[in-house]
Amino acid sequence: MLQPAFDNMVHDSQRMFRHILTALAEPLLPQDLPQLPPALPGLLPATAAVLYTLIDQDVTLWAPALPDSTVASLRFHCGLQLAAQAEQADFILLPLGSTLPPLASLQAGSAEYPDRSATLLLEVADFTIDQVEASGPGIAGSRRFGAGQLPAGFWAQWQANHARFPLGVDVLLISASQLAGLPRSTLVKEG
């Protein structure tokens, strides 16, 4: 069964985009998302909003098996095109509890065009724990951050991803009603 998307496609996606833009401009500072569309089966409510905002027929998305109704809703609202393999996708969607594909295997762009790289949409439980210290563009000084139920080994893989700068993938960490950005430019120290 199809789920309804944004109440007002134009204004709600604009508002959502500004949250995403701010999230990436001020890395690892969780943004509150006040108004969200109904959740898609198998995904958090905020994830649906991110997908409606960024996905259309011009990009491909890879995700582990999603419920049929979710795929149907995304096809209807976004013209969703699923990628056969994560390595080829523009967006990689990982619902809560999924296994992380090796970040190094995803599209990282080329030396001349580092923007031709994947964006990872990663669901997490919350942002209440304290795991890492981050610094880099968008962070005045340093910032403490943590995310519940991150896939195992994520921060270790992130170090390698950051080391490839300007190549690499960018991540949006999504909880039920919050969003944090992790662009490749962010340096993270564990502990």
């Binding site: 996606s13 995403i20 923007d115 700068f165 662009p183």
Partner: peptide, 28 residues
């Protein structure tokens, strides 16, 4: 709203996110 169609806005928005992730790099 804001003159551009929604597809164009999404294209620009995705490009802006990459631009923010790679400060100073020119995104086509």
């Amino acid at each position: 709203f804001a003159f551009l169609d929604e597809n164009t806005k999404r294209m620009l928005r995705r490009a802006l996110l990459k631009a923010v992730a790679i400060p100073g790099y020119q995104v086509p």
